[in-house]
Amino acid sequence: MIPFGFSLSPSSVTDLDKVDTRRYRELLRLEPGAATCIGCGSCSATCTSSAWTGMSVRKVILGLQRGRDVEVDAMLRGCMLCGKCTMVCPRGINTRNLILAAMRISKEDGK
């Protein structure tokens, strides 16, 4: 290629028509409470590992809804299953079950 000194930038747009939500649908089957997340962020604010690992239950749910599986896998590895997020969730989501389910789906995908 001709060395122009610049190139096409990758787009950051999420095309919702093309997002693969298979993992999220599987998560909903295993933990239907995931659908009721309102993105308040209490889980991330209280998370023991968030500050060091980037773990955030909110972002795990949103990431799976938007097909950002690789980022979700990295976040899940930071979870210590301490359960503080379960205590603060105003919607009463069983976040422990949610995290374990997300990990199981991730493991089955072999990623």
Binding site: F4, G5, F6, S7, L8, S9, S11
Partner: peptide, 14 residues
């Protein structure tokens, strides 16, 4: 600005 030229061509590409 040459460093930004990638945005220029990306918009046209879009």
């Amino acid at each position: 600005v040459k460093a930004n030229r990638g945005y220029s061509v990306s918009n046209t590409h879009k």
